[in-house]
Simulated assay, not measured.
Amino acid sequence: MIETALEIIREHGADALTLGYLAERAGVSKPIAYEHFETRSGLLIALYRRIDEQQVRALLDSLATARHQLDEVARLIARAYMTCHSASGPEGHAISAALRGDPQMEAVQQDLIDGCIGIFANALAPFSKLSRDALQQRCVGIVGAAEALSRDMTRGKLDEMAAINNLTALIVSGIDPQ
């Protein structure tokens, strides 16, 4: 059902995604869709989590193969972030926008952002003179910049390579390298 839901968003936008329409397109009964997701917000949150899981997996896989050099680690972080947003297309931002103001989604988004910040800080700590707390705060800004760049990229205002290069430069200059 998740793949079908993403197809609906891709074809018709997030506003067209309802549990009833999902059930119809997926060839299941409405009670199955409601049992699985409970609410439309629950469905959208499941979609958002799936996109985030793909992003985290790609990032961790990239970092596992990285040489111990700041430029390479920064570029891997940037590439994984932008590649995930390219792969999910505008659907990721559409899902996020559809859930704007939903208290449950705000908690989920904060949890996922905190996880991303932690991954960035762990990967960048060996290269920074900053204290752990200061590096965490810088990574908050890096994630904000990454989100803004990915939004411009998915809207066609910036190509993927430019987004990766800009985020890489922000990471390298922003962590107060040793």
Rank of each mutant, 00 (worst) to 15 (best):
M1L: 02
E3W: 01
T4S: 01
T4M: 04
L6V: 07
L6Q: 12
E7L: 07
E7A: 13
H12K: 14
G13M: 10
G13W: 06
A14N: 02
D15E: 15
D15I: 03
A16I: 10
L19G: 11
L19E: 07
G20R: 11
G20Q: 10
L22A: 04
L22W: 03
A23W: 04
R25K: 15
R25G: 04
A26N: 05
G27P: 08
V28M: 11
S29V: 06
S29W: 00
K30W: 03
I32Q: 12
I32S: 13
E35T: 11
E35W: 10
E35G: 14
E38F: 07
S41Y: 05
G42C: 05
G42W: 02
L44W: 06
I45P: 02
I45M: 11
A46K: 05
A46Y: 01
R49V: 15
R50V: 01
I51G: 08
I51V: 12
D52Q: 11
D52W: 13
E53Y: 04
Q55K: 10
Q55D: 03
V56N: 00
V56A: 08
R57Q: 14
R57S: 12
A58N: 09
A58K: 10
L59K: 00
L59G: 00
L59C: 05
L59R: 05
D61V: 08
L63V: 08
L63S: 08
L63N: 08
A64K: 13
A64W: 07
T65P: 00
A66M: 05
H68L: 01
E72C: 05
E72N: 02
V73A: 06
A74P: 04
L76G: 00
L76E: 02
I77N: 02
R79E: 10
R79H: 06
A80F: 02
M82K: 00
T83Q: 15
C84I: 00
S86R: 14
S86Q: 14
S86T: 12
S88H: 12
G89V: 09
G92E: 10
G92M: 09
A94D: 05
A97E: 14
A98T: 08
G101K: 04
G101W: 06
Q104H: 02
M105N: 06
V108C: 02
D111G: 07
D111F: 05
I113N: 11
I113E: 03
G115N: 07
C116E: 09
C116Q: 14
G118Q: 03
I119Q: 03
F120P: 03
F120I: 03
N122S: 14
N122I: 06
A125T: 13
F127M: 06
F127G: 11
L130R: 15
S131I: 08
D133F: 06
D133L: 11
A134Q: 10
A134I: 01
Q136W: 14
Q136L: 06
Q137C: 01
Q137G: 00
C139S: 03
G141L: 14
I142G: 01
I142W: 02
V143Q: 12
A145M: 15
S150F: 10
S150L: 09
S150V: 09
R151C: 10
D152G: 12
M153E: 13
T154P: 10
D159L: 07
E160V: 12
A162L: 11
A163Y: 08
A163H: 09
A163S: 12
A163Q: 06
A163M: 07
N165P: 01
N166A: 13
A169P: 00
I171E: 08
V172E: 15
S173M: 12
S173K: 13
S173A: 13
G174R: 11
D176F: 05
Q178S: 11
